[in-house]
């Protein structure tokens, strides 16, 4: 069994059983319960909410991120085990959304975490979330979801950006 077949099987296996971390980081988390429960039931795709980062594969950034949450999100992201994926919901992670001029929210999630997939909608609908998950599955199967490798390679750059955000820019200002 050459390496390609083996990694293909592991990709198909991880595609069919994506475990999502139970962490509502922003206001988009209100559209997760309908997807997780009986009306849309994401478990038929093998997806299940997991309590701890160790067991999770997918980290959902549902909406805006304040600096305080960003610290916890990065801790949780680093605890998750590779291969891990980040999906960003709504307009806030793309370019700041409605809180673009708020002093406490970060505008572009891309500067701090490698994002595998963006999803439009100021609070995407459950159908949108399921579309995004199906898209993520196809990307995993084709091997394009390489966010975690990007994080490993540019680790110092990400860390520098995160530090600047945590200190709210230059301290002496």
């Amino acid at each position: 069994m050459k390496y390609e077949e083996w990694s293909k099987i592991s990709r198909i296996a991880s595609k069919k059983s994506l475990w999502i971390l139970h962490f509502c980081t922003g206001c988009g988390a209100i559209e997760m319960p309908p997807v997780m429960t009986s009306r849309f039931d994401m478990e038929r795709f093998g997806m299940a909410p997991m309590a701890t980062p160790r067991q999770a594969d997918v980290l959902l950034i549902t909406g805006y991120l304040t600096v305080k949450t960003l610290k916890r999100v990065i801790q949780v992201y680093e605890q998750m085990q590779d291969p891990k994926y980040v999906v960003a919901f709504g307009s806030c992670p793309i370019n700041g959304g409605m809180y673009w001029d708020s002093y406490n929210t970060i505008n572009q999630l891309d500067k701090y975490l490698p994002v595998d997939l963006y999803l439009a909608g100021c609070m995407p609908r459950p159908e949108g979330i399921i579309n995004a998950m199906m898209e993520l599955m196809e990307m995993i199967e084709k091997g394009e979801a390489r966010g975690w490798e990007k994080y490993r390679k540019n680790y110092e750059k990400y860390k520098k950006n995160q530090e600047m955000a945590f200190k709210f820019g230059k301290v002496e200002e």
Binding site: G26, C27, Y64, T66, K68, R72, Y99, D101, S102, Y103
Partner: peptide
Amino acid sequence: GYLHRGFEKLMESRTWMQNIPL
């Protein structure tokens, strides 16, 4: 403080009708 977006600060920089979606 994990969800503090400073709503009241944002509302002070928006007109009366622009505050409704916020």
